[in-house]
Design a protein around this nucleic acid. Structure first.
Length: 339
DNA sequence: GTCCTCGCGCTCGTTTTCGC
DNA sequence: GCGAAAACGAGCGCGAGGAC
């Protein structure tokens, strides 16, 4: 099954960055733009899963949310279908309303209720990805043809061409994916077969893991850029204080027994699974090491080391434990629209 | 009222850090 | 290198609060 419904870890991490960075931080605009892009991609991929699963000829492995490194720079591919004769880049578009694509100008214009928005031509985007992917493949010893498709998955979209213009045949609606995939497959009937496509997929995933590790570097962030503190689940402000047996928000006076769990989840996303008693006190804003110890022992998956070397290992499920971050993002988006 | 669990502080022993 | 101070976890006990 094509699991595009998986929440990308990168998206969760950058939402956690947004929560714990000051609003005037130099990287905040880039982070917010990347969140918007990543959210749109996530919902787009969710919607394309249905079409990819419906492809009759299943001679491919789907790989999602790829970040590949070419000469120290990363580029991103939404979804890649790895056939043993060719690779298919699918540039997923989840736009609604009327979308006009002008290949001459290299733009895509969306006309909706909130006015007009201009984006890059998705074919140009996909071609650029294909070029970079080809370089990456050759650097890793592979010579395999790459095909591209721009797939519109929203049922409420009308894709148009400009007057006297043509629409590239590689732009399709989601329901055409099966047919298009068959057409492309036929082209490669007599093409040599890739020896081990799983080896290639593993290499791709290794590079993607590297990207996730270098995310802080990518935004030029250091540990002390982040504001520590427990976020109020009611008003989303950082700065709950520990009272006996519970947390109290200084802003809205909301109390919560388990607010520290959310703060530790965000620590997990930003800094990784390892945390010490001291770091927990700094992050949660508490003075008592006994309280920190108690809270960590409640939450931590396991403890490694002894005495001063004790490290608590946090273990959260990226697919189950972080839905509140998507809700938080939704709330932020609605608040911005209201302004 | 009793029992149980949770939340927290205290003591103790161990390890690390710091100043001389 | 040595001793004092600081930091830490383990274990224990106590008080508060909830369930029955």
């Amino acid at each position: 099954m094509f699991q595009t419904q998986k929440i990308p870890s990168t998206l969760l991490k950058i939402i956690a960055y947004q929560i714990h960075l000051p609003s005037n931080h130099k990287s905040i605009q880039k982070i917010e733009a990347d969140i918007a892009k990543s959210i749109s991609g996530y919902y787009g991929e969710k919607s394309i899963a249905y079409y990819i699963n419906s492809i009759v000829n299943k001679n491919f492995e789907p790989v999602q949310n790829i970040y590949l490194n070419i000469y120290g720079r990363f580029f991103e591919i939404d979804a890649l279908l790895v056939n043993d004769k060719f690779l298919l880049i699918t540039e997923v578009k989840n736009h609604r309303d009327v979308v006009t694509i002008d290949h001459e100008l290299g733009v895509m214009v969306q006309q909706g209720r909130r006015g007009e928005k201009t984006y890059q031509d998705p074919i140009l985007q996909a071609e650029k990805q294909a070029q970079l992917l080809d370089m990456w493949l050759k650097n890793n010893g592979y010579d395999i043809p790459i095909e591209i498709l721009a797939v519109f998955t929203n049922q409420n979209v009308v894709v148009k061409r400009p007057e006297n213009g043509k629409l590239d045949s590689r732009i399709i609606y989601g329901y055409k994916l099966n047919q298009k995939y068959e057409e492309i497959s036929k082209k490669y009937t007599n093409h040599p077969v890739l020896n081990d496509r799983y080896e290639l997929i593993n290499k791709i995933l290794d590079d993607t893991r590297l990207f996730n590790k270098s995310l802080l570097k990518n935004y030029n962030l250091k540990m002390n850029d982040f504001m520590p503190g427990v976020t109020c689940p009611n008003c989303d402000r950082i700065g709950m204080v520990r009272e006996k047996h519970k947390w109290r928000c200084l802003g809205c006076h909301h109390t919560d027994k388990y607010a520290h769990i959310r703060a530790l989840k965000e620590y997990f996303l930003i800094f990784g699974p390892e945390i010490t008693n001291k770091k927990a006190r700094e992050w949660l804003g508490i003075e008592s090491r006994y309280v920190a110890k108690y809270l960590l022992q409640q939450i931590a998956h396991k403890q490694v080391g002894k005495g001063r070397q004790t490290v608590y290992i946090l273990n959260f499920d990226l697919q189950k434990d972080f839905n509140y971050l998507l809700e938080y993002n939704k709330k932020q988006y609605i608040e911005k629209l209201a302004l």
